[in-house]
Simulated assay, not measured.
Amino acid sequence: MALPDITSRTDLERALRLFYRAAFADPLIGPHFTEVARLDLEAHLPRITDFWESALLRTASYRGNALAPHAALHAAAPLTAAHFGRWVQLWRATLDGRHAGPVTERAKAQSQRIAVAMLRRLGDGGTGGGTGGFVPLSAVRLASGSAVG
């Protein structure tokens, strides 16, 4: 049986709940959510669902600056290409287990674009090494699901 595509806000909210469950438990990025940001998922979920609904379903529900909270988080505990790579990897895995279709593929591609843009906009590529936005191979490997050696 074919997996359904993402077609509604409800689909997005369910996928985001699964994603955050995995992200909070992840040893690499989990501490950024649970210890640094102390993210209250119930408070955050409507806003992040607005973001993805706007991006994927072409609504105008998100009105905000997605970079600002990430910049504050980066200032408290630097976010690296490996962190963003894991974020992309977990998002893709969440979607692959639940949805398939053009909107789902757009969601996966969008996550990659967001990760690269965030790394660049955090000033030094998010790598701590002054790479000018270069995304190291570790991020590509994490995003694709390959082991980082």
Rank of each mutant, 00 (worst) to 15 (best):
80 T>V: 02
12 L>I: 15
82 A>H: 08
143 A>L: 02
39 L>V: 13
19 F>L: 12
42 E>F: 07
126 G>W: 02
135 V>I: 09
69 P>M: 03
27 P>S: 14
91 W>Y: 05
100 A>P: 05
82 A>Q: 09
145 G>T: 11
47 R>I: 10
61 S>Q: 11
52 W>I: 00
22 A>Q: 14
55 A>C: 06
80 T>R: 02
94 T>A: 11
46 P>D: 06
137 L>H: 12
72 A>G: 13
137 L>Q: 13
87 W>G: 10
63 R>F: 03
105 E>C: 01
115 A>H: 03
107 A>T: 01
58 R>Y: 04
81 A>D: 12
104 T>R: 09
90 L>I: 11
116 V>H: 10
149 G>R: 13
136 P>G: 08
29 I>T: 02
113 R>N: 12
19 F>G: 01
22 A>V: 07
61 S>M: 10
106 R>P: 00
144 S>V: 11
40 D>K: 08
113 R>H: 11
33 F>G: 04
17 R>T: 15
45 L>Y: 04
72 A>T: 12
29 I>K: 05
107 A>I: 02
51 F>E: 05
65 N>W: 02
95 L>D: 03
93 A>K: 14
77 A>H: 14
99 H>A: 09
130 G>A: 01
23 A>F: 09
99 H>Q: 09
62 Y>G: 04
114 I>N: 01
65 N>I: 00
103 V>S: 03
114 I>F: 03
82 A>R: 09
9 R>V: 13
